[in-house]
Design a protein around this nucleic acid. Sequence first.
DNA 1: GAGTGGTCTAGACCACCAT
DNA 2: TGGTGGTCTAGACCACTCA
Lengths: 220, 220
Amino acid sequence: MSTLRERIGWQDAGPNSAMPIYLRLREAFKSAIQRGDLQPCDALPGERDLAVSFNVSRVTIRKALSGLVESGLLNQRQGSGTYVCAGPNRVEQALSRLTSFSDDMRLRGLEPSVVWLKREISHATPRQAMRLSLSPNETMCRLKRLRLANGTPMAIETAVVSTRHLSDPYLVENSLYAVLEIDRLSFLDNGAPIEFTHSWYRGDAYDFVAELTLRTTTND
Amino acid sequence: MSTLRERIGWQDAGPNSAMPIYLRLREAFKSAIQRGDLQPCDALPGERDLAVSFNVSRVTIRKALSGLVESGLLNQRQGSGTYVCAGPNRVEQALSRLTSFSDDMRLRGLEPSVVWLKREISHATPRQAMRLSLSPNETMCRLKRLRLANGTPMAIETAVVSTRHLSDPYLVENSLYAVLEIDRLSFLDNGAPIEFTHSWYRGDAYDFVAELTLRTTTND
DNA sequence: GAGTGGTCTAGACCACCAT
DNA sequence: TGGTGGTCTAGACCACTCA
């Protein structure tokens, strides 16, 4: 049984501590999760205990964890605890943000709904095959749906997914990504791209913010 | 001359203060910026002064402001101050995030470069005309470029912009959005969508995170 | 050197969840 | 009821910017 300090590879501030404590802590936890030293569904000690363990204040612990909660690596539930959400599963993590349409609408008191415009299987175009590293005769599910809030069209989403990962477009009800999760392990190991989603959003009703983050591959 | 409390429409916690102070403060500042009561380039008072003005601690002020900094409405510079970044310019705000490719690469010690695959003017397709609320014979700039880091292809971006907003595709060098900013006022007032960008990213090298936020139109 | 944001502390009270 | 995360405070020191 190793201590948490060991599991996340923590060392007290050396002379080379240019980074603030909360960032060093955040990176240490992040690395431990990505290495697998902290497993999904693991519960972290309480914030007060963490503060004692690492000789910092609870505020610093919270600042360290908050970034990981925001990026989806951790999950905090008031009254319950802090839990590891997911390993280095960047595809599922990234796409999970896109499922929030329904949640977003409901949070604002609007009733979300979906009209399916297309659900079919066809061959990949040469371009898609090239981009997604597929053989030219690979079959693809093509999904297209209109998203509404209180009956008002808000977005059109088009998704193309290899049938290797989604065998039947009619498996998808509300969340494409919930279905894809089933296949998580099969396509995450090699990191190959598996899906492309293409969306139009109402410019007068949405902020659309996209962020890119280069994946930092840690070898240790 | 009105006080800052008045400009952001602040009122001390009434009995109906279900939201925490830092969120109410954040919303008040956000609304003031979007209404134009706080203008771009305006400097905010120092955090210590704000804390006194609103009868809260500096930590609470910082927590309120941090969300606005993160979403690009405010800009903080150590040793200098806090400044209003942009008005209710959601198109420019959203797209500005996408310009970060070069910055991202450089931050990580990689040299970004661009290979143009297409820069042309043609007519809008019927579908595009419909989606972007254009007349059917509207002309569009079509831009397609390959993004590289240290010579390795990392992303392909395709952008389609009405010539009303971008007269010549050769005006675009590195940042499409820098060029579009010139036209900012002309297309932001009506909130019409003006552009569609379509990008492929290397699944093995990128995290791609997209967030949607419903625009909350505050009338007061 | 005065003022700014960036970090950090030790303590407090609350709402919530579990048992 | 005891532990959890969520919020908030008053104060401190630092690095930085700018005149």
